[in-house]
């Protein structure tokens, strides 16, 4: 039976494999190595220079889709069109900002036989940076002190217990470390111009960065959990190299997160270990991270398991993973014909 695998058509977004990469290309590589199915990959792109568009050995065809800010109906209309051409089985959205419309569309898409494996709206909202303090209290997880700011003037009245440096974060993306009020003000303006209000000001925890990526089945079971230590961090704070580790406490923390929230879908926990060895939860990303291909390297193909969960199959938790496997990211210049760029730019399809 193994030689005749079923073929699934899977649409994947986040093809921006740039210096601050989206996870799409990594997810696609994992799917192409899936043991339980073959894939036809449909890329979903926002801009015409997302590198994944031009990786024809990975992506079979790409369609441009409207930004989430265009509204749910516009996104649905476009997916409906793509579905009419490609007959999608599964969609894997990989941008935080996309999750809102796709979670809202889950039911409608399911009626069209398009499956997804996403957190619920409640899970998506409660883990939001804006609600991290509450989240920490509710699930007994240590989180750095943070406050949500809705207008520049409240920056001046930051609670006095805040110690510099602080991290200023946008609602969806962007984060930067600030050492004084002037820097906070600059960042406030920069981030709100792009991502809107509010912004989050979080006390900076000194220590080393660790991440866990994993997959929850929505019933409280951990299907996969892989702790990783960042070995090389770019200026933009992205891991350029990392290694799988065996830290028991990180695994426990992850199990506790999944079993309490009954998290459904992929996720990444960003953790900081301070000098006393305490783990602080900095952020919960409600989707797979850009380094998700490491999961294949350590023996737990998370994207494959996620697709099977999306299709409603019974997926057994992975038993083990290889410790000490590394990923080292690299940049790669592709040669692209201008006609291809022209086609995606003017027709929105390639």
């Amino acid at each position: 039976m193994a030689d005749h695998k079923r073929k699934l058509t899977i649409a994947v977004s986040g093809l921006n494999a740039i210096d601050s990469p989206g996870p799409g290309v990594a997810v696609i590589r994992a799917l192409r190595e899936a043991e339980s199915f073959d894939v036809r990959i449909i890329g979903l792109a926002y801009e015409s220079l997302e590198p994944g568009i031009f990786m024809h050995d990975l992506v079979d065809r790409t369609y441009q889709i409207p930004y989430p800010s265009a509204g749910i109906d516009a996104v649905f209309e476009r997916i409906d069109y793509i579905h009419s051409r490609e007959k999608l089985d599964v969609i894997i959205p990989n941008f935080d900002a996309e999750l809102y419309p796709f979670i809202r569309l889950e039911k409608r898409l399911k009626e069209m036989n398009i499956h997804m494996c996403l957190p619920t709206m409640e899970q998506f909202e409660e883990r939001h940076k804006v609600n991290l303090n509450e989240f920490g209290t509710r699930y007994n997880l240590k989180v750095p002190k943070s406050t949500v700011v809705h207008e520049l003037s409240s920056v001046y009245s930051l609670p006095s217990e805040f110690k510099y440096p602080v991290v200023v974060k946008g609602k969806y993306y962007d984060a930067s470390i600030c050492y004084n009020m002037e820097q906070i003000k600059t960042q406030f303006n920069k981030i709100t111009a792009k991502w809107g209000l509010p912004i989050i000001i979080q006390e900076f925890v000194h220590g080393s960065e660790f991440n866990v990526t994993g997959l929850g089945d929505g019933k409280g079971n951990t299907i996969s959990a892989i702790p990783m230590r960042k070995q090389y961090i770019t200026e933009k704070g992205k891991a350029w190299g990392g290694i799988s580790i065996s830290d028991k406490r990180m695994l426990e923390l992850t199990h506790s997160f999944i079993s309490q929230t009954k998290w459904k879908g992929g996720f990444e926990l960003e953790l900081m270990k301070d000098k006393n060895g305490e783990f602080y939860l900095l952020e919960i990303n409600p989707r797979m991270p850009a380094w998700i291909y490491l999961s294949v390297g350590v023996g737990q193909n998370i994207p494959e398991a996620l697709v099977r969960l999306a299709l409603g199959e019974d997926v057994k938790p992975f038993a083990e993973y290889r410790v000490g496997k590394m990923f080292v990211r690299f940049a790669w210049d592709m040669i692209v014909d201008m006609e291809e760029f022209q086609t995606i730019s003017t027709m929105g399809e390639l």
Binding site: M338, F341, Q342, T343, S345, T346, M347
Partner: peptide, 18 residues
């Protein structure tokens, strides 16, 4: 100008749509 309204300026490397 291509049929799809794409313009490439080979002198500057810029692309346009019309």
């Amino acid at each position: 100008v291509s049929d799809s309204g794409f313009i490439f300026n080979p002198d500057t490397g810029e692309s346009f749509t019309v």
